[in-house]
Write a protein that binds this DNA or RNA. Structure first.
Length: 944
RNA sequence: GCAGGGGUCGCCAAGCCUGGCCAAAGGCGCCGGACUUAAGAUCCGGUCCCGAAGGGGUUCGGGGGUUCAAAUCCCCUCCCCUGCACCA
């Protein structure tokens, strides 16, 4: 007969009972609170295996903390703002084949349902229902009264408030920013719009404004602005086309774009074309070949030095301005070009960087060392350039030629110098792609375009960053190395464009026609959870949620009577909201997968520190790794997806929960293997039937109250496990907690093998085991709890106390010892190929125990230090030769001091059974002179 | 390039912080045994090499070092993964 458990039936039964008992609704009380959140899901599909992992982790922890008598707030919202849902609606409306395939085949949506989803609203409605169903089927212990979608009008009022707060602090600013742009499509392009060069990033070139004799500006494009101190000449490409043009800067003001006269520039024709898109208006005056410039002089704006314009074919006009500074002391290209012209001596080299292991002129040195002959050897030149660049960047220090910057490291000076030059009006920034070719899907080459009139959140603000760092210093991170990662992300953060022209979202309150971008509207929403219950239950209208109300609830500002009048919300409710916020905030733990580190989680910290007082800053972040399925990466469009509902259907909620949280350590990527999931199911079934057996036997059998040796051992192991489990769970080490459960099952196996069968002990064991398993597999645990005749829900039962009295190291070591003895006997049987009739066991001589005692008393000492201590005692002298060897072995074997004879005597019958021998003789006649080999914790063995 | 993570006995994966209980947990796979009419499940045992007494040998990406002792600490080196933004 195949024994199986109807998981689905059990799950349904308990989910209904929990819901009826409103078991997981959280309300403030006198207990300690525990507020845990996960980054809510974006609903352009069903919840998948990745969500399952990220959400089940906090779910399990929430259940654990609840059993620890914490008042746990654990709930969810749905993220629906942004463009993907909009895009999906269009695809479905257009009956896009690929989309229909993916959603019917991978997401498991029936085609007739899917084809209906032609508007964003329908999609949101449909997938939020699906998500709720998935959460419920998995037995999540959520407070559903607090659920919301980011498109809810009441929620958008909250986002509006958030933006007013940021604006008040000067953190919402208007400006322009560079994007990758296709002139043919007249649209910014995203990664997936790009045919060639999708990895291209934007690179900032510094344009240093040299001036010609007739007062024109010749901007030198460079990635190494610090080398301006060593310019000996400048290069132009004699064959390329250059222009002279009037340049204006387009400056944004509240009243629109203002043009500022920026002088007359000389630059490559291509450059002029590009700069038009980068906040500059350009009127071309004349066009000419580069050779026309050769021989003229320009003035270095930093050093004031006049240098000649020389021709060089290596100068590219498709990058930068087509005008290049020549720094032959440090740039191999420049040195070679100068040498090719035969002008090295005449022009001279100006060193500006001191570099260890190099002389005054690193470029000259490396060119000579590599034997580069001319400009034609481009590969070698590239290599030399890279090498020098790298070394100078990491190890170089500016020398005395760099007035005002001497002594600074190259890596530090770059940004500073650029900033200084821009401030003084001596330089500007120009953007280029990091790759030469970037082509749009339409086939047209892309360019960099400055988008004007964009609104930003000013994450670059130094004071703001300081607060964020401060917050990070105080937070807890799991894993701990995240702290450093976040510090770095904060430093690296620049302003973020926070509004869009299309997509779902909150209307931007400070200018018509914009929608708040979707990463910016989901930063402080855990605060909303604390009051969502009131908004949902009392059906509070969006217009009642005024700025002053939120100010009062979240910041404690304002007069409650006036707010009552203004909003029409009763004073009691407002007060409750405020109190509930104060009770639950801050968030104790925020959980997410690692993809949200550089964006959402960083914004989460930023926005909290900007808006809330310190006591409400985030306390902790937990980040888990990704999920793969049978080694394959998840993909919403190509599969595999493994919807959560499919897991519930095929394996059951408990199996899915337990497996996904324990199959990999938290920061590691987890690979789902269906075979292993099946095994998890079998384990749960075995526990179920074991419980059933014990429950049944309890009804009829008499219980032996007396505790045997092995009963005591099991209770010791059990109580120790409670302790360890608790520590693991506090630290989100769910896999370790899971392994502990498996180990307990192994212990139980051993207990039975050793003849343990005390019903009271078994029941005690199961009761604890069920409680330890409950956060992971709550349904089957409730079922077993009921089976054992326990009161109430195990889900809300108290976590077991550790009974220190039962923890018995001596007994545990004894069993460890016994297992080792069995191993040894087996080994001998194996190697000697004997089938013994009798087993003789000999424990060590007393002096060896004395030795062990000394070793134990001097733990931490090295062997070298140990020897004199031992030899001081005369009784050891006669074993002098043997002592070092024995000491070594004792340390190596990790020997323990226990009453070995007692353990062996107690296990005599057991050993006889195990090895099927007539007799086990302890310290009997010394057969074959074996006894002398005995060591403490490692008896001598003779088989007959 | 910068930053973070990783490379362990067929595969997956612990151990590394806090050096000796490490030939290195656990799972999968494979082999053998018990149970069974049989299969499955379960239980027991084996799974780097050698070994007729519990032992020995060679292993933890590669090279070097520290130490009585290194998978674990230090230095160098090779390889893999992820992120570097306006996309959720």
């Amino acid at each position: 007969m195949i024994m199986s458990v109807d998981f689905k039936k059990i799950e349904k039964k308990w989910q209904e009972r929990w819901e009826k008992a409103r078991l997981f609704e959280a309300n403030p009380d006198e207990r300690e609170k525990f507020f845990i959140t996960a980054a809510f899901p974006y609903l352009n599909g069903v919840l998948h295996a990745g969500h399952l992992r990220t959400f089940t982790i906090p779910e399990v922890v929430a259940r654990f903390q609840r059993m620890k008598n914490r008042n746990v707030l654990w709930t969810f919202g749905y993220h629906v703002t942004g463009t993907p849902i909009l895009g999906l609606a269009e695809l479905i409306k257009n009956r896009d084949e690929k989309t229909i395939w993916a959603y019917t085949q991978l997401h498991g949506i029936p085609e007739e349902d899917l084809l209906e989803l032609t508007t964003p609203e329908k999609i949101v409605e449909y997938f939020s229902k699906k998500a709720e169903e998935a959460f419920k089927r998995m037995g999540f212990s959520l407070d559903w009264r607090r659920n919301f979608k980011t498109s809810d009008e009441v929620f958008t009022k909250f986002i509006e408030w958030q933006f007013y707060k940021l604006k008040e602090k000067g953190l919402i600013v208007k400006g322009s920013h560079p994007v990758r742009y296709c002139p043919s499509c007249d649209n910014p392009v995203e990664d997936h719009d790009i045919l060639i060069g999708e990895n291209a990033t934007l690179v900032e070139y510094t344009l240093i404004k040299f001036t010609t004799e007739d007062n024109c500006i010749m901007p030198m494009a460079t990635l190494r602005p610090e080398t301006v101190f060593g310019v000996t000449n400048v290069w132009v490409n004699p064959e390329a086309t250059y222009v002279k043009a009037k340049v204006y800067l387009e400056k944004e003001t509240d009243k629109g774009v203002k043009l500022i006269d920026n002088g007359i520039w000389i630059m490559a024709k291509e450059c002029a074309k590009k700069l038009k898109h980068q906040n500059r208006k350009i009127e071309i005056i004349e066009e000419f070949k580069g050779e026309k410039l050769v021989g003229k002089k320009v003035k270095n704006p930093i050093t004031g030095k006049e240098v000649p314009i020389l021709p060089a074919k290596f100068v590219k006009t498709n990058i930068g301005t087509g005008c290049v500074m020549s720094v032959p002391a440090h740039a191999p290209y420049d040195y070679i070009a100068l040498r090719d012209l035969g002008l090295v001596d005449k022009i001279g080299l100006i060193p500006l960087i001191k570099l260890p292991n190099y002389g005054k002129f690193p470029a000259k040195e490396i060119v000579e060392k590599m034997g580069i002959k001319s400009q034609e050897e481009e590969d070698k030149l590239e290599e030399a350039t890279k090498k020098i660049y790298k070394e100078e960047f990491h190890k170089g220090v500016l020398n005395e030629n760099c007035i005002g910057y001497e002594g600074l490291a190259v890596r530090e000076v770059k940004d500073k110098l650029t900033k200084d030059l821009i401030e003084k009006g001596l330089a500007e920034i120009m953007y280029e792609f990091s790759e030469e070719k970037v082509v749009c899907r339409c086939g047209c080459p892309c360019m960099v375009k400055m988008v004007k009139g964009q609104w930003f959140i000013k994450y670059s603000d130094e004071k703001w960053k300081e607060l964020a760092h401060k917050c990070i210093d105080r937070m807890k991170f799991i894993p701990e190395n995240l702290r450093q990662v976040f510090h770095e992300k904060i430093d690296w953060m620049k302003d973020k464009a926070c509004v869009r022209r299309r997509g779902l979202g909150t209307k931007f309150p400070f200018e018509e026609g914009w929608v708040i971008e979707s990463l910016s509207d989901s930063t402080i929403y855990p605060a909303y959870y604390t009051i969502a219950k009131y908004i949902n239950q009392y059906n509070i209208k969006p217009e009642q949620l005024t700025l002053t109300l939120f100010d009062y609830v979240f910041l404690g500002k304002g007069n409650i009577d006036e707010i009552e009048k203004e909003t029409g919300i009763s004073k009691d409710i407002i007060k409750n909201m405020r109190e509930e916020f104060l009770y639950y905030y801050p968030v104790d733990w925020r959980c997410s997968a690692k993809d949200l580190i550089p964006n959402h989680l960083t914004f989460y910290i930023f926005n909290h520190v900007a808006i809330f007082p310190e006591e409400h800053w985030p306390r902790g972040i937990v980040v888990n790794g990704y999920v793969t399925i049978e080694g394959k990466k998840l993909s919403k469009s190509k599969g595999p997806v493994l919807p959560v509902l499919e897991v519930a259907e095929k394996f059951g909620a408990d199996v899915g929960r337990f497996y996904i949280t324990t199959c990999a350590e938290l920061p590691q990527d987890a690979d789902i293997k269906f075979k292993e999931m099946e095994n998890t199911k079998k384990v749960l079934e075995r526990i179920y039937f074991l419980t059933k057996e014990v429950a049944d036997r309890k009804k009829t059998e008499k219980v032996n109250e007396e505790l045997t040796y092995i009963d005591q051992w099991l209770l010791s192991v059990l109580n120790k496990a409670i302790k360890q489990y608790s520590e693991f769970m506090d630290n989100f080490e769910l896999r370790k907690a899971g392994i502990l459960i498996y180990q307990l099952l192994d212990n139980l196996k051993w207990y039975k093998r050793r003849g343990g069968d005390n019903l009271n002990v078994l029941e005690e064991f199961l009761e604890v085991l069920i409680k330890l398993m409950c956060p992971f597999t709550p349904h089957i645990c409730e079922e077993m709890w009921e089976m054992l005749g326990k009161e109430g829900f195990v889900s809300t039962s108290k976590f077991p106390n550790v009974n220190e009295d039962f923890i018995n190291e001596e007994i545990e070591k004894g069993e460890e010892y016994l297992k080792a003895v069995i191993e040894d006997i087996k080994e001998i049987i194996n190697v000697a190929k004997v089938k013994p009739r009798k087993i003789y066991l000999y424990t060590a001589d007393d002096w060896k125990y004395d030795l062990l005692k000394i070793i134990k008393e001097n733990e931490g000492k090295t062997i070298k230090e140990l020897m004199p201590i031992i030899m001081k005692e005369s009784k050891f002298r006669k074993y002098g030769k043997e002592i070092p060897k024995v000491v070594n072995q004792l340390i190596k074997n990790n020997a323990e001091l226990i009453n070995e004879v007692k353990v062996l005597e107690n296990a005599k019958e057991f050993l006889k059974r195990e090895f099927d021998v007539e007799d086990v003789i302890i310290n009997g006649e010394d057969k074959a002179n074996k006894k002398r080999h005995a060591l403490p914790f490692k008896p001598a063995i003779y088989l007959e």
